Structure formats: C-alpha cells, structure tokens
Computed example of a mutant assay.
Amino acid sequence: MATIRKLRGKWQAMVRRKGIAPRSKSFDKKSDAEKWARDLEAQVDVSGYVPDTKIAEQTTLGDILRRYRDEITPTKRSAKTEAIRINAMLRRDVCHRTLALLSSTDLAAYRDQRLQTVAPATIIRELNTISHALDVAQREWGIHLARNPAKLVRRPSAPKGRSRRLEGDEEAKLLAAADKGRNPWMKPLIVLAVETGMRRGEILGLRWEDVDLERRIAHLLITKNGECRDVPLSSRAVETLTGLMQQPDRDAERVLPVSANAIRLAWEHLRQRAGVGDLHIHDLRHEAVSRLFEKGLDIMEVSTISGHKTLTMLKRYTHLRAEDLVGRLG
C-alpha cells in the first residue's frame, strides 16, 4: 500500500514493494499523488518491475548532448565538425526540456523552426545526432525513456545529389588558373582528384610512405568510412606524383603539405579565375567516378577504387552522359 503524506507544503507519495527500490514523488495536489501511486502499483503488479524515471525527470536534452559531445564525439573521425554542430544546438530552447517531458512534438517544432534558416541536410544531421545521443543515454548511461522521440520525427526530404561534372574545356581552365595562383598545391590536387577519385581529405592526408610508384598504388590508411583501401594510379597520376617527389624542397612526409583551410580559400579564388563559379571541389570526385564507368569498369571495380560501400551511394556519385553511352549501344 502506498504512503501519502504532506511534506514541506506538498503531498508526497511513496511506494514500497519487495524487490524494487522505494519510489517517491511530490505533488501540489493530494489527488495527483494518489493517482501516481495507484498507477505505479498497477505497473508493479503487472510487470513486477518499474523503471526509475527520476534521472530522466532531472536531466535535460542539453545535459545529454554535452555528455555525448565530451564522451562519444571524440571517438569519431568527424569529431571537430560534430562538436561544432552540438555546440550550436545547445543554444536552442529545446535543449532545456527534460528527457521525461521531451516529445516528438517538441522536436518537430524544432525541425520546423530550423528549416526557416538552414538546409534540410543540416536538420537531418542534427536530428540524427539527437537520436543517437538518446540511444546511448538509454543503453549505456542508465536513463530510462519510454521511447526515443527523435525516431518518431519525420525528417525533411534530403536534397538531390549534385550532378555537376566538368564540361568542355573546364578542366584545362582550372589547371591554367592553378598555374597562375599563389598556392602551388592546387594543380596536383586537381589532377589527383580527377584521376583517382580520392576525397580532398584523403589526398591531403596522403604520405609518401603510402605511395608505391612502381606498383602504381596509393594506400589510404584513413578514409571517411573508417576502412583503409588501395587506390590504383593512372599514368597521369603517377606523372604528377613523380614530379612532386622530384622537387628538391618537397616535404619528407606529406605529398601535399598544405591545410584543408588553405585549399578551401585557394579554391574560391581559383574557380573565379577559371570562370567555373558553380563548381565545388568535391565535384571532381563525381567526375572521376563517372569517368571510371565510362572507361568500361564494372560496379565492383569502381567501388574498390572509390571506396563506396553501397550501390546507392555509388550511384549518387555517378553521372554518365547519354552522348558518351551512345557508341556502346551499337
């Protein structure tokens, strides 16, 4: 039988049952305390177990996101980007909501508000971060939630993948503009991106010890999906790497000893000089993957080179031109 008593101006209900820790909660009204006690006892009678919701009642979404940022985020390759995203999310009102009260309605309102200022892809990443943080809180941090409200929220439609490829003499324009620029690493980066399909981060992380020019292989220890892979080098890629290796003042470790931020800034100036203002540096990877298919390589061969793990993702990076396929139809 539950105990109902008045304590410090409020009504406290306490339920004691053998095999479970005593549970108590305070209310302004005696009727609310009695109802809570009856409901709790009914749960115990049915299941023999009542989860402790006290932590969820005292912990906010912001508390969970901070702990997630400090403990889980550093284990990821995208740690820096995710930490920045979480810090921005912590300034939102929804982070003051306790987990016991957090609902899918709250997160849907958050989604709609954010969609007024950011792209759908940003919202998808933010909701996925919240969802994973709540999952970790449930599985590993001993916080009981009846369900994960973030999983009930509809994600906005993801934007269609870019289909931009190099057209006409755009590659020649890029290389000519690179020759006139201040950053000497832009031209080899463009060539390697188009010839190998490697991501910008993979190219910038490439070390000489991982390049075998005799076998024409570049070994990538760290990739976006966390798995290493070997990338075959075309004759043009080998020629570019050989030229870099023969430079008297080359870096002893890195193939391209330049920061990602320096490349980003140089690219903005370069594409304006080349007259290709709508071209992203990541579009060079799209171009490379599409060219591999146009050379006649099959799906398994291309995915081995590009590192794509699923056909869906590989398809997003493949944009074949109809005119280039006509000759293969006979």
Rank of each mutant, 00 (worst) to 15 (best):
K10Y: 11
A13V: 09
V15I: 10
V15E: 11
K18S: 14
P22V: 10
P22W: 07
P22A: 12
R23A: 12
K25H: 13
S26T: 13
K35E: 14
K35H: 11
D39T: 15
A42D: 15
Q43D: 13
V44I: 14
I55D: 12
E57T: 10
T59R: 09
T60A: 03
L61V: 02
D63V: 00
R66E: 09
R69Y: 08
P74G: 09
T75P: 00
T81C: 00
T81D: 08
R91Q: 15
V94S: 07
T105G: 10
A109F: 01
R111S: 07
Q113V: 04
L115C: 08
Q116G: 13
E126H: 02
A137W: 04
W141G: 02
H144Y: 15
A158D: 04
K160E: 15
G161Q: 06
K173R: 15
A176Q: 14
A176P: 11
A176W: 10
A177L: 14
R182C: 05
W185E: 00
W185S: 06
I190R: 04
V191H: 07
L192A: 06
V194G: 06
M198A: 06
R200M: 07
R215F: 09
R216V: 07
R216Y: 03
L221S: 14
D230M: 03
P232I: 02
V238Y: 08
L241P: 01
Q246A: 13
R250G: 15
A252T: 13
P257K: 03
W267G: 04
W267V: 05
E268F: 14
Q272D: 12
R273N: 12
R285G: 06
I299H: 03
I299F: 05
V302H: 05
T312R: 14
M313F: 01
K315E: 10
K315T: 11
R316W: 05
T318H: 01
H319F: 00
V326T: 12
G327S: 05
R328K: 15
G330L: 00
